[in-house]
Design a binder for these strands. Structure first.
Lengths: 123, 123
DNA sequence: ATATTATTGCGATTCTATTGCAATAATAAA
DNA sequence: TTTATTATTGCAATAGAATCGCAATAATAT
């Protein structure tokens, strides 16, 4: 399935790039000037995830956040921690790698590590 | 608010103790022989969390899982990883501590680290 | 200019979790 | 033991996030 270039995709990417953080669907929608349907935004976000452009983080509040991928070539590798600030409700990718000795016999497919608290801006 | 001893609380604790894993509300409900309302189970689980008996993990599927606390005395300290098996849909506490250098200026309140994949039983 | 089909909008739907309120039952007090 | 107090429960309604089906639209190829 060949992808097409659409205003929605451009707008979503622009918002995420500018923010430099992970964002939820509703936060992204708020930042887009043109009116785009909620379902469409979700579909665009999920497509970007499939294509290795974005990665998805699920915070302890159960919400999904999407952030730009840095170096996901063939497959996603998001072995870094995320920080969710309960004050400003933002999620950012920390430059800290997740590093653990996985017990024998376990097959790792994905990592979802979120630290929450107050970020350095709000502290 | 003083807590009371009720059949629901006993049943929930028994199930979680037997399982030795983190469980979701619906999984717990299935394991309880007597019929208990969904809302009640959630309330019991959340109360246990408040009281330091259980801790809550939110997986990448957005669902909440509850597990017994080991050594939470004054406050919760769940600095360990969790593993969610996408095959058998269980979540277990790994005996591996989360160990990261938190960037300066950040105030940590909670950790929610879930690795997902296939557990050693299903592999 | 036309055909193809990826993408979108809309409304409905699913799923998880929570809440208000009256009824029930565990515990304290008499 | 009986009565009073109030934590707990059940039920139905509600909130909130995310997804889905389907027809309409629009990006790209012909």
């Amino acid at each position: 399935m060949k992808r097409r270039k659409t205003p929605t995709k451009e707008a979503v990417l622009e918002v995420l790039t500018k923010a430099g953080k992970a964002m939820s669907q509703d936060a992204i929608e708020q930042q887009i000037s043109i009116d785009i349907n909620r379902a469409t935004i979700y579909r665009v976000l999920n497509r970007f995830c499939d294509d290795g452009v974005l990665h998805k983080i699920v915070a302890e509040n159960g919400k999904q956040y999407f952030a730009l991928c840095n170096d996901c070539e063939e497959q996603h590798n998001h072995d870094h921690f995320h920080f969710r600030c309960t004050q400003c409700e933002t999620v950012e990718c920390l430059p800290v790698e997740v590093n653990l000795a996985i017990p024998k016999g376990y097959l790792v497919e994905n990592m979802n590590c979120v630290i929450s608290g107050v970020c350095k801006t709000c502290v």
